[in-house]
Amino acid sequence: MRQADIRAACVLIAVGLVTIVFVIPRQTTPGNTFGLPPAFMPSLTMAIVVGLSVLLLVRSLAARDDRRPAPILAVEWWLLLKTGSLMLAAVVAVHVLGLPIGGGLGVAGFMVYLGERRPLPILATAIGSAGAAWALFVYLLRLSL
């Protein structure tokens, strides 16, 4: 965890400084002559993040190695990539085909991904989810999906 804390602190310091120096000035307006500029609170909060991250870095460097495994193992990164990709695919399906159909396909896809092989539960759950989405959002709430 010590190594992970050092890396996390470095990333936070770098992201924080880039945000304060480059992002916030470009993404905010100067504001009025009275009151505080719009950049005030984003800059303040990001400065706090940077300051606390420096403290975290110092504390982690001073600490002894705790010999605990890395908080995210290589296999977990790989699983995150796979699961995240499937989630993205489900979201794209919803985007292209609409919530009822895209969502139904997403449900079926995730069931197969998680190891479900019985066609009846897959079909029933996917169609049930799609039907419920249609009934609630389209029929009852009159939303366009």
Binding site: A90, A108, G109, P121, T125
Partner: peptide, 12 residues
């Protein structure tokens, strides 16, 4: 295997 996909769908 059934509930997790439904929760993901509900989240979306």
């Amino acid at each position: 295997t059934i509930i997790n996909p439904i929760i993901i769908f509900l989240c979306i």
